[in-house]
């Protein structure tokens, strides 16, 4: 019995042209038994930084609260909101703190990095369960459907997608990947983040 597959679930993030998207399924299971179809794994950290937490459900809740606390402390101390790249290192160090008794979560981050000239740069990253960061330039995946997500994303993704096309790409990638994974699925949610708005769409999917 693998702890990483105990509750199931998958997350993916993609880079587009001046935008990023992050999406996940909505399943919460107890091994093969489905428990809930409204279990969200993606949480807004700021207006421009989103965090996905696939893995052991109890640690999803724990880490979400942990990051809420640490982010509040950062915001009070610095008197500004955190940048995505800084947040990735916060995630990394939080997980590495538990190097020999880890949280069973493989976080995925997506956000827009503020540039000195006032513009924004798309940012995505993922880490393993002990906080080793992967700063990918195209897409990152995690969860029980990760190998399927890799296959579909590698086939569908292309550089410089506009927000609407990026939404379609990430939605199709996620939906088709989780349909081949028994531990993921039961609906999906997609967040598309641009410089002036973040759109959340809840998708219907196969319920088997």
């Amino acid at each position: 019995m693998s702890i990483m597959e105990y509750n199931g679930g998958s997350v993916i993030a993609m880079v587009g042209k001046d935008c990023v998207a992050i999406a996940s399924d909505l399943r919460l299971g107890n091994q093969a038994l489905g428990i809930a179809s409204d279990f969200e794994k993606i949480f807004p950290m700021t207006d421009r930084v989103y965090l996905g937490l696939p893995g052991l459900a109890t640690d999803v809740t724990t880490l979400r609260e942990q990051f809420r606390y640490r982010l509040n402390m950062y915001t009070i101390k610095e008197e500004r909101e955190i940048e995505p790249e800084t947040f990735a290192h916060l995630v990394s160090s939080t997980l590495y703190e538990r190097r020999f008794g880890p949280y069973f979560i493989e976080p995925v981050m997506a956000g827009l990095q503020r540039l000195p000239n006032g513009g924004y740069k798309p940012f995505i990253a993922a880490t393993d369960l002990i906080g080793c960061i992967n700063f990918a330039k195209d897409f990152v995946v995690a969860g029980t459907a990760s190998s399927k997500l890799f296959g579909v994303a590698e086939g569908l993704w292309e550089p410089d997608l506009e927000p609407e096309d990026l939404f379609e790409t990430i939605a199709q990638t996620l939906l088709n990947a989780v349909d081949r994974d028994a531990y993921s699925g039961w609906g999906a949610v997609v967040h598309v983040i641009t410089k002036d708005k973040a759109i959340k769409r809840v998708l219907k999917g196969r319920m088997d």
Partner: peptide, 19 residues
Amino acid sequence: AASSLVQPFLDNQIYFKNQ
């Protein structure tokens, strides 16, 4: 070896699943 990567892509592109 890579059937888990390829099959869902085929579901989408050949069977037009989720489209």
